[in-house]
Design a protein around this nucleic acid. Structure first.
Length: 336
DNA sequence: ACGCCTACCTGCTTGC
DNA sequence: TGCAAGCAGGTAGGCG
């Protein structure tokens, strides 16, 4: 499940393989994979474009093409990219194929023949789109209007993303902490794995009201997000479930503290990691290290607290935990 | 306006 | 063995 570190790894792996190459043809077997523009126009526009740079924004790969075009690839859950000699047999999950005339490659290497850039996506969630950049370099959305990434929050690892800005953004939010971290308009690139990991590292409960943190907690969360993301990039991301980096698997999964570690000892206190569902996502945390203060459940965010009480009465959401009914207490309020 | 919920997908696992 | 249900989750779009 690619998040920021996995997509960053894909971009870094892909760059030396395709930068400098020219796209000569586009093929697809499932039109919805081309989100924008209409598939025929996409094929027409992309022909003869040179791939000038491979980068990343949020969880998207962005290939800068000649003529101020940008090929944006959203891999979502199971999207993968491969570069193989043209004509290589591939399976039915490859839904888009770009034929590349390699031309001279950085480092003086010369490919001996055309290559295919393959987009493979088992679950067909991923999409590609071709967009224009305006004079200032901003990628324009459909119909050349607005910013393609206008709805996205800041990149957590950029210098421009300061603790001060993080605090300001966090205090404007009304929802729960984890829901907020997963919201791409709050911060770009955080997904389920690194949301859980960041909250564990910051010792904050996933259900905390986002606007209820004190100064120290805000700082811890800010540093946790950046620390977890930075470390995950160095380790080439996490290889879990369907996802592995094609150019060699990431190893961050061996260094995760909570994600998919239900029942295993917390790396800080030794107590078992617990799991519950939030917004239909598995949520992993340590109920000893990550407490939900009483005040949080009652006062600081009224609408949130009201909803929490209603859900608790109906016995939904955080009561149907796997196994251990007596132990199941995602609020983390039980004394050990 | 904002947050929450569902649909989109398919392969794998689990249960009968 | 076979089949169906359950599960994984990023995010657009609909809903309240």
């Amino acid at each position: 499940m690619p998040e920021l570190p996995e997509v960053e790894t894909m971009a870094r792996d892909l760059a030396p393989l395709v930068e400098g190459a020219t796209i000569t043809e586009a093929w697809w077997d499932w039109p919805p994979v081309v989100r924008h523009p209409a598939p025929d126009e996409f094929a027409h526009l992309i022909r003869s474009r040179r791939i000038e740079h491979v980068g990343r924004r949020a969880k998207w790969l962005v290939l800068d093409l000649s003529g101020s075009l940008a090929l944006a690839i959203q891999v979502k859950m199971t999207g993968q990219l491969f570069v193989l000699p043209a004509g290589t047999v591939h399976d039915k999950h490859v839904h888009l194929r770009l034929t590349l005339d390699p031309g001279p490659v950085a480092g003086g290497r010369m490919w001996t023949g055309p290559r295919w850039l393959l987009f493979r996506d088992i679950r067909k969630f991923g999409r590609v789109g071709l967009y224009r950049r305006d004079g200032s370099g901003t990628i324009l959305g459909p119909a050349d209007q607005g910013e393609l990434f206008g709805d996205h929050g800041p990149e957590p690892l950029e210098d421009a993303f300061t603790l001060r800005e993080f605090r300001q953004r966090l205090r404007r939010r009304r929802g729960r902490l984890k829901t907020t971290l997963l919201d791409q308009s709050f911060i770009a690139g955080v997904g389920n794995i690194y949301a859980d990991e960041s909250l564990w590292r910051a010792r904050l409960h996933p259900l905390r009201a986002a606007d209820s943190l004190n100064l120290d907690q805000e700082r811890r969360l800010y540093e946790a997000i950046r620390g977890v993301m930075g470390e995950a990039i160095v380790r080439r991301g996490s290889s879990v479930d369907d996802y592995t980096a094609p150019e060699g698997g990431g190893e961050m999964q061996e260094h995760l503290d909570v994600y998919q570690r239900t029942g295993l000892p917390c790396h800080r206190c030794g107590r078992p990691i617990r799991r519950f569902e939030l917004n239909a996502r598995g949520t992993h945390f340590c109920s000893w290290c990550q407490r939900l203060p009483l005040a949080d459940r009652t006062g600081s965010n009224r609408s949130l607290a009201r909803r929490a009480r209603r859900q608790a009465r109906r016995g939904r959401n955080w009561s149907d935990l796997e196994g251990l009914e007596a132990e199941a207490d995602p609020l983390g309020s039980r004394a050990h």
